Every structure is written in C-alpha cells, then in structure tokens.
Amino acid sequence: MASKRDLKKDIDLLMSMVLNDCFYALEYNSKVDAQAVMKIASDVIEKHREFRIRTNHTDGKDNPKLVKEYYKALVADLLKTANEAFDSLSEEIKKVA
C-alpha cells in the first residue's frame, strides 16, 4: 500500500468525479429527474465520509496481512460504489433521452 494520504486523495478524486457528473446532468439536462440525481449525489457524499473514516481506522494494526486485506477491501468497495453511482446516473439520463 502506498499511503493513507494517497488513498484519501484517490477517494476525494473519485467521489468528486461522480458529484461533478451529477451536477453537470442537473445543469445541462432540464428533463432529468432532479430528485433522483440528488439522491445519487447524497448517497455519494455519505459514502465519501464513510470511506474517509474507514481509511483512518484500520482493523488489525498489529498484523500487516490483516492491514493489507483491510485496505484491499476498502479500495474494492470504493470502486464498486463509484461504478454503481455512475451506472445509476447513466440510467437516469437514459430515461429522458
């Protein structure tokens, strides 16, 4: 693992990309369901906070193998969450297209 600092930056970057797309969709597509897009954005914000907290509070600090597995699971959850958010946003935009 590189560092907690880099992981936090990656979390911030990925979650901000999803939020930017949500706000872009709201701004430039007046037909999109604003409530659904805002729900996606609020879920992303909640997950962002959760990931940042999980980054700071590592399980099994004494065992390097447990720490490595913990961060692998965290990164997998991060990517899964971002992918699901992008897919949900895509579906909302396709509804009006």
Rank of each mutant, 00 (worst) to 15 (best):
M1P: 02
A2H: 04
A2F: 04
S3W: 00
L7N: 01
L7T: 00
K9L: 08
D10V: 05
I11W: 00
I11K: 05
I11R: 05
L13Y: 01
L14Q: 13
M15R: 02
S16Q: 14
M17L: 11
M17A: 09
V18G: 08
L19I: 13
L19A: 11
N20I: 02
L26W: 08
E27T: 10
Y28P: 03
N29V: 11
K31W: 04
A34L: 06
Q35D: 15
Q35N: 15
Q35K: 15
A36G: 05
M38A: 06
M38F: 09
M38E: 15
M38Q: 15
K39A: 14
S42T: 07
I45W: 01
I45Y: 03
I45R: 09
I45A: 07
E46Q: 09
E50I: 00
F51R: 00
R52W: 01
I53P: 00
R54P: 00
T55C: 14
N56M: 11
T58E: 09
G60V: 00
K61D: 01
K61L: 04
D62M: 06
P64I: 14
P64F: 15
K65M: 11
L66C: 08
E69C: 05
E69G: 05
Y70V: 01
Y71S: 03
K72W: 03
K72E: 14
K72D: 06
A73P: 01
A73M: 02
A73I: 01
A73C: 04
L74K: 03
L74G: 03
V75S: 02
V75W: 01
A76S: 15
D77R: 03
L79F: 07
L79R: 15
L79D: 13
K80C: 02
K80R: 14
K80A: 08
E84Y: 04
E84R: 05
E84V: 01
A85S: 15
F86L: 10
F86Y: 11
F86D: 08
D87S: 13
D87R: 13
S88L: 07
L89V: 12
L89H: 10
L89G: 13
L89N: 11
E91G: 08
E92D: 02
I93Q: 14
V96K: 03
V96N: 05
V96T: 15
V96C: 11
A97N: 14
A97H: 09
